[in-house]
């Protein structure tokens, strides 16, 4: 920051700012400078920076919009998933109910069939029992007749077969 001696002689007193002889020079170059700066800024720098800022705002807005869209899609996908889940559940319930009904029907059928078979078998058995009983009665009659005839003979009588049979008949009927 040397103070040059050249200044001493010419500008010893006062302010160089008030050296009016330099004013036209300063004003001339200043005007040129300002015009150049204005041209650089208005033609190149400011439109460029303004463009970049606008582009950035646009990009950010777009990105936010895109993110919102994706979010909406995700919500929609979730809803679709839930819907599908509910559908699947109700379908499963329907299938289960159907299967249950099927099984129930089969079961009812089988029970009915079994019942019918059982009652048929029971009827058959009853018939057989009745037959056996009838057979037994007949046998009793026969045995009774023969025995009665034998007893009569043994007692010295003459067994009248017809009378014995009739007597037995009445006896059995009476007891039965």
């Amino acid at each position: 920051m040397a103070t040059e001696t050249t200044g001493e002689a010419t500008q010893a007193a006062g302010m160089p700012q008030l050296e009016f002889s330099t004013f036209p020079n300063q004003i001339f170059w200043l005007v040129i400078t300002l015009v150049v700066i204005y041209l650089i800024l208005s033609r190149v720098a400011l439109p460029r920076i303004g463009g970049v800022l606008a582009e950035r705002t646009g990009t950010i807005t777009n990105d936010i919009a895109k993110a919102e869209e994706l979010k909406a899609q995700a919500v929609e996908a979730e809803a679709a998933y839930n819907r599908a889940l509910a559908e699947a559940r109700s379908e499963a319930q329907r299938i289960a109910a159907e299967a249950r009904a099927d099984i129930q029907a089969g079961l009812d059928d089988a029970i009915a069939k079994a019942d019918a078979e059982i009652s048929a078998k029971a009827a058959e058995s009853e018939k057989a029992i009745a037959e056996i009983r009838a057979g037994a009665l007949e046998s009793v009659k026969e045995v009774a007749t023969v025995t009665a005839a034998e007893i009569v003979t043994a007692l010295g009588g003459k067994a009248d077969t017809k009378a014995v049979a009739a007597a037995i008949e009445t006896r059995i009927k009476g007891s039965a």
Binding site: M1, T3, E8, Q11, G14, M15, P16, E19, N25, F28
Partner: peptide, 22 residues
């Protein structure tokens, strides 16, 4: 010292005269 000397306007390429275009 000359605190105001730093403000002196001098022709860049020598000479003493400061014309409007210098």
């Amino acid at each position: 010292f000359y605190p105001m000397d730093q403000f002196i306007i001098k022709p860049l390429f020598g000479g003493d005269v400061v014309n409007w275009y210098t």
